[in-house]
Design a protein around this nucleic acid. Structure first.
Lengths: 237, 237
DNA sequence: CCAAAAGTGTTCATTGTACACCCATGA
DNA sequence: TCATGGGTGTACAATGAACACTTTTGG
C-alpha cells in the first residue's frame, strides 16, 4: 500500500473536560490516571485515537467508558500540540468539552477509573497541560453560554427557574435580577411549564419547567441574551 | 526511550483556509497540489506537522511558504478526522483560518506553488474534504466577525468607510444603511481619521481611516455590533 | 404567624433602525 | 453642469435595566 513516505507519524489523543452542575457549584469530573507517567495523579479522561475512528468517535468512546453515558453534549474545543507536552512521547491532544447532568451520571459511576467530581474552584494539580485545558474550556463555556442555550445540558429533564438562574449566576460569578431573568428566559418559548413544583428548596415551591425540544433545536443557533450585558463585556474568543 | 507501546501513530497535517477581500469580493487562495494523490488538483495550502513544531508553528510555516507573509491573522478552526478522508493513508487535519490583506500578498507571490485567488463564490472542485473546510471556515468567519473586529485584517493599513462597509455587506450578503453603519463603527473609537482621501472610486473622494492599535487590542475581546441584528439571527456555533 | 423563597409589572435609559438631503468634484 | 458616490442628523421603536411588593406554606 502506498503511504506518504518520510513523514513523521505521531500519537493523537482526545481529552474530555466534563462539566457538571450540582445546583450550587460547577464541577469537573477527573480520574486518577492508571498508567505511567504520572500514575495516580489526577487527570482529565482521555485516550488515544484508534485507527478506524474519528476524533468525535474517540471522544464519545472515552466518555462512554468513564460515565456510561451516550448522546451527551460534546464539542470540540481545540488542539493542544506543544511538542513536549507529554514527556514520554509526542502526543497531539484534541480537547473536547462535555456537559452532563451530574445526577444522571451518579448512578452509572464507573469505578474502574477512580473518577471523582471536583469543585471547579478547587481542582487538584493536574497532569501535563490539563489545567490549561480546563481553563480554556471554561472560557469557551462562558462565551458560548452567553449566546446559546447550552447550559440546559447540565440540568435534569425538569428544573426550576431559580435553579436555572443559579447556574447562570455561578458561571459568570454575578447576581442577576430574577424578574428580568425570568422574563428573558420565558420570552424565548424554550421552556414548558409543568404542573408540579419542586418543594425541596422552599416552602412555597417552585414550578418545574422542561425544554421544548422543537424550539430548542431551532433556537440553538440563534442568539440569546440571558446574561446582562455588563457581565459579558470581557469575553474572549 | 520509553514510548506508549502498541498505540497507533498517524500523520497530522495543517490546512489553511486563506481569505482575502479585493474591495468587492471575498477570495480564497488555493494551490495546485504538487504531489500524488490528486496531483494538480486545486487544494488548500497545507503540510504535515513536523516532529518539533506545534500545530500553530506548522500553520505559520505553511502560510509563510506560500505567501511570504509572517504575523498574519491565523486561528485554529477545527480538526477534520474522518479515517478515510485521505485515500492514501490516515491523516488528521487541523484546519486554520487566515485573513490577509490581498494587496500585501500580491507583491510576494510564490510561484513554486501555482497559487491563485479564487472568488469564494466560484471555487473549483477541491480535493478531499477541503470544500467542507472552506465552508466551515466561512461560517466561523461570519459568526466571529459579527462580534469582533477581525475583518480589519483583510484591509490595508488605510481604508475608507465605504470599503469597510462593502466588506461587511459582502460577508453577510446584505445591504447596510451607511448612516447607521458609520455611526456604529466610529462610536467604537477603533478608527482614526486620516487627512487624505481615496479618490479611486469617486470624484468627491472618501477619507482614509486607520486602526487605533491600542483600542483594537482592548476592544478585540469585547462585543461589537456592526451587523444589523436582523442579519445575524441565524448564525451557528 | 412568621420566615423564606417564589413570583410578578412598571418606569426609564439605552440602543437600534428607518429614512432623505446636501456636498464635492471630475468629466 | 451634472452625474456619481460621500457624508451627515433626527425621530421612533425595541430592548434592557433598575427596582419592591405580594404570595405561599412548612414549621
Amino acid at each position: 500500500m502506498i503511504k506518504y513516505s518520510s513523514q513523521n507519524r505521531m500519537l493523537v489523543a482526545v481529552d474530555c473536560i466534563i462539566f457538571g452542575f450540582d445546583g450550587t457549584d460547577y464541577k469537573v469530573l477527573l480520574i486518577q490516571r492508571g498508567f505511567a507517567p504520572e500514575k495516580e495523579k489526577w487527570s482529565l479522561m482521555g485516550g488515544f485515537v484508534q485507527e478506524k475512528e474519528s476524533l468525535e468517535q474517540a471522544a464519545d468512546r472515552v466518555l462512554k467508558q468513564l460515565t456510561g453515558l451516550k448522546n451527551v453534549y460534546l464539542e470540540q474545543l481545540q488542539a493542544f500540540s506543544e511538542p513536549d507536552r507529554d514527556p514520554i512521547e509526542r502526543v497531539i491532544a484534541m480537547a473536547y468539552v462535555a456537559l452532563i447532568d451530574i445526577h444522571k451520571y451518579e448512578q452509572q459511576i464507573n469505578d474502574d477509573f477512580h473518577a471523582r467530581w471536583f469543585l471547579l474552584r478547587e481542582l487538584p494539580k493536574l497532569i501535563f497541560d490539563h489545567a490549561q485545558m480546563v481553563d480554556t474550556a471554561l472560557q469557551r463555556l462562558r462565551y458560548k453560554a452567553a449566546f446559546h442555550p447550552i447550559l440546559f445540558e447540565l440540568l435534569p429533564e425538569k428544573f426550576t427557574l431559580p435553579q436555572l438562574q443559579a447556574m447562570y449566576e455561578g458561571l459568570y460569578d454575578t447576581k442577576i435580577d430574577k424578574r428580568n431573568f425570568s422574563r428573558k428566559v420565558l420570552s424565548t418559548n424554550l421552556l414548558i411549564k409543568e404542573q408540579e413544583k419542586d418543594k425541596s428548596s422552599s416552602k412555597k415551591g417552585a414550578f418545574y419547567y422542561s425544554i421544548d425540544k422543537e424550539h430548542y433545536k431551532e433556537k440553538f443557533e440563534s442568539l440569546l441574551n440571558f446574561v446582562p450585558k455588563t457581565e459579558i463585556t470581557a469575553l474572549n474568543e
